[in-house]
Amino acid sequence: MPKKKLTQAEMPVADYAFYGLVWAGTVLTDRVDRALSKAHDLPVSWFEVLLWLASSPDPVPASVLGNSTMLSRSQVSRVVDALQSRGLVTRTPSPRDARSVEVSLTPEGHRLFEAADATRRECLAPVFTDLLDQDDLQALGTVWQKLKADKDA
């Protein structure tokens, strides 16, 4: 006898909300990863590092990238190695701490980020931003801030 799926009404609200977050994160990340890999040979983890670097006017300490991204410090190090080998980022010794390095985008890194960011936005529009209004997006931002604030506590 085939088993039926639970409906939203049969699931506790907190469980359904959690499932929704997991589903959305998995499906949207996979969609972006496929689009970025196909168009730019750029895995989503690399894009995440580029996003943080593009958002900063100054070079970013490698340790800050490890604390800011969804990647472990060792993953960040491998991603930065790969980005550097493609000429997209540079590493420079930190003027504040001789033991650490700072990472910044090269001009080619900025160009690739701009193109990849346009690809990301284009691929998400029909399944995310076009479906949600400003109130929805603001609510998601508020939820993310609450969840992140608890993580940082």
Rank of each mutant, 00 (worst) to 15 (best):
R78T: 12
S72Q: 05
V22L: 14
E114G: 03
S45L: 08
E122L: 09
T119N: 00
L88I: 12
S37Y: 02
S104R: 15
R99I: 13
P61M: 09
D30L: 12
D136Q: 10
F47G: 00
E108P: 00
P57I: 09
D58W: 11
S77R: 05
R34G: 02
S104T: 04
L36G: 01
S72H: 04
V89P: 03
P59D: 12
S94P: 01
V89S: 06
T29P: 01
P59M: 11
R73I: 13
W46V: 05
L124M: 14
P43S: 06
T26M: 10
S100T: 13
L53D: 01
S74Q: 14
P59V: 11
R31T: 07
S45Y: 11
R120W: 10
S104W: 11
R96L: 15
R86F: 15
D130H: 04
T29R: 10
C123A: 06
V44N: 02
A116I: 13
P126K: 05
Q84F: 04
L88H: 02
V76N: 02
V27C: 04
S68T: 14
L131G: 01
D58R: 15
V89Q: 11
R120P: 00
L51Q: 08
W46I: 06
A39Q: 11
S68R: 15
V103H: 08
L71W: 01
S37I: 04
V76K: 00
P59F: 11
Q134Y: 09
K38P: 00
V44M: 05
T90Y: 14
S68Y: 14
A115P: 02
V89H: 12
S37C: 03
L112V: 06
P43M: 10
C123I: 15
A98I: 11
W52K: 06
D136V: 12
A125V: 06
A125S: 14
A125Y: 11
L21V: 09
M70I: 08
E114V: 06
R78E: 13
L53Q: 02
V44W: 02
A24S: 12
S72K: 04
V79R: 05
A62L: 09
V27F: 06
V76H: 00
A139H: 07
A62H: 10
A139V: 05
L88P: 00
L50E: 09
A115N: 11
V44C: 05
L36T: 07
L124H: 01
V101L: 09
V80K: 00
A125E: 10
L53M: 11
L51N: 08
D41R: 07
V80M: 02
L36R: 05
W46Y: 05
D58E: 14
P61K: 08
D41Y: 06
V89R: 08
R86T: 07
